[in-house]
Computed example of a mutant assay.
Amino acid sequence: MSGRGSGIVLPALLALVVGATPARSQDAATLKKEMIGQWELSTTERGKTCVVTLKADSSPQGLKLELEPGCAAALPFTKDIAAWNIKGLDIVRLQDAAGQPVIDFTEVESGIFEGLRQGEGIYILQNLAAARALAKSMDQMIGDWSMVRGKGVVICGLTLTNTEADQDNFQVFLKPKCDPAVAAFAPTQWRLERGQMILMSAKGDVWHFEADDNAQWRRVPDSADPLIMLRQ
């Protein structure tokens, strides 16, 4: 696929992810007010999503909420969610009809919350508009890329796909005639996570890339002869 729009996409992605500020310290009343509205509940890679509308109205079970019709099919545990509440100073709880937690979220970056379900993994709760803007940016990451050394020498080509490899990652394919170091790494999966493009091999090796001011992705930690990812 072409790199059309990548010059716009990467700054937008940076603004959404890299530029996110750390979670703020705040009281429960302020957090409750800020949570009113539409949120996206998702797996970490957004392969499965559910729109949750948090309301200020009270009910016998807690504060009212609405789940979009497809939530239970996408995320089966949501069928148990009947209400929401703030616990302590900073825990956003989605709870069942008895008031027991289905999943608890804490803010890890401004407007981005993480929650863990034992045996399932981590789930993300973030503002719906921001999540959809990020998804649009991520979708435009799909396609052909070149790995380039700092002096502009192309050492490998690869294709990022939106085909799920597992719950959190997508498939990536190397093209023929790659540099031996890249061929030995042999990435098979990728994902975007907190401002980084992450490539992973079947052996468990991981390379991290961060977007820079030139709308390109540099491997971190940086080196005197940097490895850069560029859209083709």
Rank of each mutant, 00 (worst) to 15 (best):
I91S: 04
D80Q: 11
P76M: 04
A135L: 13
I86E: 06
A130K: 14
T53K: 12
P101L: 01
A56Q: 14
F105E: 04
Q118V: 13
N85H: 05
I112P: 03
L128Y: 10
E109W: 11
I91K: 12
I122F: 10
G99E: 01
L128P: 02
W84H: 04
S110A: 14
D104T: 01
L94H: 00
K64V: 08
A82M: 10
E109T: 12
K79C: 00
A133I: 09
V108L: 09
L94M: 04
Y123G: 07
R93C: 02
S59N: 09
L89A: 14
N85V: 08
L75P: 07
P101V: 03
A129D: 13
A74V: 01
G99L: 02
G62P: 04
G115H: 08
E114A: 12
S59C: 10
I81T: 03
A129I: 11
E107T: 03
A83S: 12
W84G: 01
P76V: 07
K55T: 08
K79A: 12
L75Y: 05
P60T: 07
F113V: 05
L128T: 06
V102L: 07
K55C: 04
P101T: 06
A82C: 04
E109F: 09
L94A: 01
Y123C: 02
I112S: 11
T78Q: 05
G115Q: 06
L116T: 12
V108K: 13
E120C: 00
A97E: 12
Q61N: 11
S110P: 03
N85Q: 12
D96G: 09
Q100Y: 05
P101F: 01
R93Q: 15
S58L: 09
A73K: 13
A74T: 10
T106Y: 07
Q126S: 12
L54F: 07
S110H: 10
I91T: 15
A97V: 10
G121F: 10
L89F: 10
G121A: 09
